[in-house]
């Protein structure tokens, strides 16, 4: 499932062996399950609990998120560019939805 609020920055080209920085954000309330609405009922938890980055089909970076991650989660991490191909990212929502995006990278 695509999501309009995903923004990622992946370099389009890299030298072989270069360590590249990837920046990501997704729009999400990251509802903690601690808050109450005006009538005193607890608002149920709904967060993105998992982020997975794959590089040419191989899982290279996986994160588990908890309610301690701020709303509209931003994350920056690194990958070693070894071959041209696709970098795919997936955000897993508590409600079962998976939001994905992918970028092409040319390694010379």
């Amino acid at each position: 499932m695509s999501n309009d609020t995903i923004k990622t920055r992946v370099p389009a080209t890299a030298r072989k062996g270069e360590v590249i920085e990837i920046k990501t954000t997704i729009g999400h309330d990251m509802e903690t399950g601690q808050r109450q609405n005006a009538s005193g009922q607890t608002i149920p938890r709904r967060i993105i609990n998992k982020f997975v980055c794959t590089y040419n089909g191989k899982e290279v970076f996986v994160t588990d998120w908890y309610p301690g991650i701020a709303a509209n989660p931003y994350m920056a991490f690194f990958l070693r560019a070894e071959e041209s191909g696709t970098i795919e990212m997936a955000w897993h929502d508590d409600d079962g939805s998976v939001y994905t995006t992918s970028s092409e990278i040319t390694v010379s």
Binding site: V19, I20, T32, Y55, K58, E59, V60, F61, V62, T63, D64, W65, Y66, P67, G68, I69, A70, P73, Y74, M75, A76, F77, F78, L79, R80, E82
Partner: peptide, 20 residues
Amino acid sequence: VASYHFTPASGRAEVSGRMR
């Protein structure tokens, strides 16, 4: 808050984010 799982393909053990 979070757990980050790296592999040798990460190249650098560094990650940034925002916490509550």
